[in-house]
Design a protein around this nucleic acid. Structure first.
Length: 457
RNA sequence: GUGGUUGUAGCUCAGCUGGUUAGAGCGCUUGAUUGUGGUUCAAGAGGUCGCCGGUUCGAAACCGGUCUUCCACCCCA
């Protein structure tokens, strides 16, 4: 028989994995809620037109399209069909697509429900998203995003809030050495302006973003290929030797961008955020200005954030976000500034696992298994189990009166810490024999002693 | 989308330049042990060698295609 399988880039989760994932989910949810965000949910698929064109050309390719129902191919006209151009036929045979991220559906939500929403609107959303990408380390075709966004406020205190929120979550998870990198789109525009490459802003930033990966020469090479002049590269030189504290970096930026109004504005924003964080303090993470950071340029207009896992794990980004002044504009609602961040749950999982940071207590396992000696004894056990469950103690009965070795083996394999033997002897005395599976120690107890033992242990 | 890589027992993997009956460890089942698991000992079950096609007297091995794994690029969480 052929073994069944799941599609490329998708995963099954076993009980232990689900418990651990829930631990991360709950930590994030708790923190979102603590910061005043409220949950919403949106459908797993949207109308294609909602998603298409919102993530650039590359993004369109990575969106999973859903075929129309019915005899969709017969409705395509002959000429179009004979051209065999997938890009042209796709919109005719597919009108729905799987969610690609949570930000665009959120923008759609805000516009659609604008009259019911009280602004500033703070929402969080934890749902799976899908990308038709090739899987590799920490990259899946189905994965969860945990987003928090605020729309309807241009205040820079939002940026400050989000940096603290990131820090709070990673502190709770015990993940030390996380770096929250920050940049500003206006600074990138300012640099492009200063070196005379405004028209090549995207090529310029995409190349710059690769600095830590391909090095200074690699970046210059790519910029030359994209048509950025030698003179411009000369002016860019100070960027490659950017070092020191955030304060020092801001100083150098001011020097470099003093002629650019846009650039200076970005620097002022950065300074505000950096100063506030300096005064408020951070726990497990640190805030670092990184002028090469250029992610998600499609809609970010101000602050850009990216969270990197501690250096010792090779995982890249475990979260990101930024300020977008006109996200809802694509759906017809203007002047609605927003700011948001996202946690990459699946990658955080891999990092916590690699660093062995999951608490032991995450498991949702039973605390005690009653050995089944037959129907009469099982009833006695069930009565006790019911009482224990009412007290919040996870207890269960082995369903069959199988051989004891088998029942013990079951408890052992499932890592259930205690078993209870209650046969004729115990029933007569209204007692229970409690066995500690780790030490092998056994004690005969009455119910109240049993309750005590299971509660404290 | 581009380049590379992987697939053999439930799991981790051996299996030489093509040669008869495809192996190991762990796990599983049964027994030693009819009220005691994790240790030990004994016996046993389990594979159309990812799938389809080709080369050959003969293919797990060679070739082509396809699916899958992992990695790099593009891009990204």
């Amino acid at each position: 028989m052929k073994k069944p399988s799941i599609p490329k880039g998708t995963r099954d989760f076993n009980p232990e994995e689900v418990s651990r994932r829930n631990y991360i989910f709950n930590t994030i949810k708790e923190t979102f809620s603590l910061y005043g965000f409220q949950p919403i949910e949106t459908p797993s698929f949207e109308n294609s037109e909602t998603l298409m064109g919102k993530y650039g050309e590359e993004g369109d390719r990575l969106i999973f399209k859903i075929l129309n129902s019915g005899d969709y191919i017969s409705k395509v006209d002959e000429k179009l069909y004979s051209e065999k151009d997938s890009n042209k036929i796709t919109p005719k045979i597919s009108e729905k697509a799987l969610r690609y991220d949570l930000t665009v559906p959120f923008a759609r939500y805000v516009v659609q429900h604008q009259n019911e929403i009280t602004f500033p609107f703070k929402r969080y959303q934890i749902q799976p998203v899908w990308r038709a990408d090739r899987p590799q380390k920490g990259r899946f075709r189905e994965f969860f995003q945990c987003d928090a966004d605020v729309v309807g406020s241009t205040s820079l205190w939002q940026e400050v809030e989000f940096v603290q929120l990131y820090d709070a979550v990673f502190s709770k998870l015990g993940l030390k050495g996380v770096s929250i990198k920050i940049n500003n789109r206006k600074i990138l525009s300012g640099i492009a302006e200063t070196i005379g490459a405004e028209d090549k802003l995207i090529d310029f930033t995409v190349a710059l973003d690769k600095l830590d990966k391909i090095g200074e020469e690699g970046v210059k090479k790519e910029m030359r290929e994209k048509g950025i002049s030698e003179v411009a590269l000369q002016k860019l030189q100070p960027l490659f030797s950017f070092k020191g504290s955030n304060e020092e970096k801001i100083g150098s930026l001011k020097e470099m961008l003093h002629t650019s109004e846009m650039g200076m504005k970005g620097i002022a924003e950065l300074q505000f955020i950096s100063d506030a964080i300096e005064k408020l303090g951070l726990g497990a993470s640190s805030l670092q200005i990184d002028v090469t950071l250029a992610r998600g340029l499609n809609y970010y207009t101000g602050a850009i954030l990216e969270v990197s896992a501690p250096e010792k794990v090779n995982m890249g980004s475990i979260g990101g976000g930024g300020r977008y002044d006109d996200l809802t504009g694509i759906f017809g609602l203007n002047d609605m500034s927003g700011m948001g961040i996202s946690f990459g749950l699946d990658r955080i999982y891999l990092v916590l696992e690699e660093l062995n940071l999951f608490p032991e207590t995450v498991s949702e396992n039973s605390k005690v298994l009653f050995i089944n000696f037959g129907d009469k004894e099982a009833l006695y056990a069930m009565k006790t189990i019911k009482k224990l469950r009412n007290l919040g103690i996870k207890a269960e009965l082995y369903p069959d009166s199988a051989k004891m070795g088998k029942q013990m083996g079951y408890a052992d394999k499932r890592n259930i810490p205690f078993t209870i033997l209650a046969g004729e002897k115990e029933i007569d005395a209204q007692k229970y024999t409690l066995k500690n599976m780790k030490t092998g120690e056994q004690r005969e107890l009455g119910f109240s002693e049993l309750e005590e033992a299971l509660k404290t242990l």
